[in-house]
């Protein structure tokens, strides 16, 4: 038996009636179009996901909660771009004993200037006494400080610098907000010596000692927005917490 020739005949018999569909070309092209559509849809989904992931930190940075908000979080040493830093109430601000007693507690954040549960229903600035004029972008200051002077705004049309100072038994705190073209946090550093590296809400920051037992931290809170927080005395221990609470 010649196996090769038998195999040829067997194969010929097997596929004798096989013929390609008349719509083969159309089917192939349809399959090609479907594949392209799938790829475009997948690429769109990936792009949308990336955009959302990129926008969340930006949104978080703009979603500032006023100082003294009763929504406080457990203190933590880790810093995440997706997590709000702790926001203890500003000194002197009354806080409801329980979140349950607050209308809408745990569901929505109340916009600045309208803290929840105010019995008078009017606008209530965080803090009392010297902290009554606390800027909205400062959400935490340690106890025992009063404003040394109203926040001063200096600079040109291209670069505006807002400087706020507080003093008290707890030492002193100075926050400088610079809006204008900035190459990096190193431009904001006033400390001498080699700055150390750290991060504020996931943003790279520089830190260094100031003359006279003070300490400062500088970072870019956004495009062309630089922040420097300096503290002296016992307030130095709250430097990072104050910095985390700055929401320009």
């Amino acid at each position: 038996m010649d196996l090769e020739s038998e195999l040829r005949k067997a194969m010929a018999e097997q596929v004798a009636d096989a013929s390609a569909s008349s719509s083969l070309v159309a089917d192939v092209k349809r399959r090609h179009r479907r594949r392209k559509t799938r790829i475009h849809a997948a690429a769109g989904t990936v792009a949308a996901s990336i955009a959302v992931l990129a926008l969340v930190p930006t949104y978080q940075s703009f979603r500032a909660t006023p100082a003294g908000s009763s929504e406080t979080t457990r203190p933590t040493s880790t810093v995440s771009a997706f997590r709000q830093p702790e926001r203890p109430p500003a000194p002197g601000l009354s806080r409801p004993p329980s979140a349950k007693g607050r209308p809408g507690a745990g569901t929505t954040r109340h916009p600045e200037g309208h803290p929840p549960g105010g019995p008078a229903g009017g606008t209530r600035r965080p803090g009392i006494g010297g902290l009554a004029d606390l800027p909205s972008w400062v959400t935490y200051l340690p106890d025992g400080l009063t404003a040394a002077a109203p926040c001063a705004v200096t600079g040109t049309a291209n670069r505006k610098t807002t400087t706020c100072k507080w003093r008290g038994d707890a030492g002193w705190v100075e926050i400088v907000l610079v809006k204008g073209a900035l190459a990096g946090p190193q431009e904001l550093m006033r400390s001498t010596g080699i700055p150390g590296r750290t991060s504020v809400r996931g943003t790279p920051a520089l830190t260094g000692d100031l003359p006279g037992s003070g300490r400062q931290i500088s970072w870019l809170a956004g495009p062309n927005v630089g922040v420097t927080v300096s503290a002296g005395g016992s307030a130095t221990g709250h430097l990072m917490r104050i910095a985390e609470g700055v929401r320009p």
Partner: peptide, 15 residues
């Protein structure tokens, strides 16, 4: 190409 060689390719694929 597909019109001309489709049948032959289908038979090869079937085998």
């Amino acid at each position: 190409f597909v019109t001309e060689r489709g049948d032959a390719l289908l038979r090869t694929a079937a085998l």
